[in-house]
């Protein structure tokens, strides 16, 4: 991780998150990490260190959890997150072809971020919108009935 990115990072939002929970204990690790990711876009190391210092919860416990669960990113992501569903219904309707097309178009693999930091592309196990298979989300918007040709076109409207 590039530490230069973390120099000058505003740690006040992190302190605020801890304050809002009162006296967080081990059971609050996941909610804390989720709030940190909401505030910073990912889980930065200096933020975890500050939160650990303020709560007395070992930083290793935070990292153990952050590296286990798929939701948490330890490096900054793109401005927009693409979540392509690779669930069963989507798979059966051709999601792998759509994935190939998007990976080629964006020049990233699953989990990667485009060089211009515009998109982070990841696949998820199921979006619960199976009737629209194959489906993807870009931020909070859903796009269904995708084909390898249609999917990259959808991304044009995202800056």
């Amino acid at each position: 991780m590039n530490h230069a990115q973390n120099v000058g990072m505003d740690l006040e939002p992190a302190r605020e998150i801890v304050r809002a929970l009162g006296t967080p204990g081990r059971g609050d690790i996941i909610p804390l990490l989720q709030k940190i990711q909401d505030a910073y876009g990912y889980v930065p190391k200096p933020v975890v260190e500050v939160v650990s210092a303020e709560t007395g919860i070992p930083a290793s416990w935070f990292f153990g959890v952050a590296t286990f669960y798929a939701q948490f990113r330890l490096v900054p992501g793109g401005r927009h997150t693409i979540r392509l569903c690779r669930g069963t219904a989507c798979h059966v309707k051709g999601a792998t072809m759509v994935q190939s097309a998007l990976e080629t178009h964006l020049a990233v693999k699953d989990g990667g971020t485009t060089e211009d930091l515009r998109f982070t592309f990841e696949t998820v196990a199921c979006l619960g919108t199976c009737f629209l298979a194959p489906v993807m989300m870009v931020d909070d918007d859903y796009y269904g009935d995708l084909t390898p040709a249609k999917a990259p076109k959808v991304l044009k409207s995202y800056e």
Binding site: I30, V65, Y69, A70
Partner: peptide, 25 residues
């Protein structure tokens, strides 16, 4: 309400409990 964090295994009851306790699922 507590939210999961993207782990299918946390649908298994003891892994779910571990997750609620702030541990790896």
């Amino acid at each position: 309400v507590r939210m999961g964090a993207g782990a299918f295994v946390c649908g298994e009851e003891t892994a779910l409990i571990a997750s609620l306790e702030g541990k790896r699922g």
